[in-house]
Amino acid sequence: MCLAIPALIKSINGKEAEAEIGGIGRRVSLWLTPEAKVGDYVLIHTGYAINVLDQEEALETLRLLEELSEVY
């Protein structure tokens, strides 16, 4: 039910955007994320962008995991 998937914003027209999910275009609503810009990745849930994904935080999580020692 709470399924949400990352999608790339390709263009914006008012409160709606055209987003790309795995190569497929879809119209999504930006009612909940008016701050979204073209080029942002947003999380899509039931046709609405519920958040703009934070690329820096994503990279930081991956960096910390890469540096993580297997031995604790």
């Binding site: 990352p6 990745y41 690329q55 991956l62 995991l65 890469e66 993580l68 297997e70 031995v71 604790y72």
Partner: peptide, 24 residues
């Protein structure tokens, strides 16, 4: 960054599993 594949990396999964096994 596509926000999916990066979080399915097996090298990172193995590190995390090793740590969980040691700690738990």
């Amino acid at each position: 960054m596509r926000f999916i594949d990066e979080f399915r990396r097996s090298d990172l999964a193995q590190k995390l599993i090793a740590r969980i096994k040691q700690k738990a």
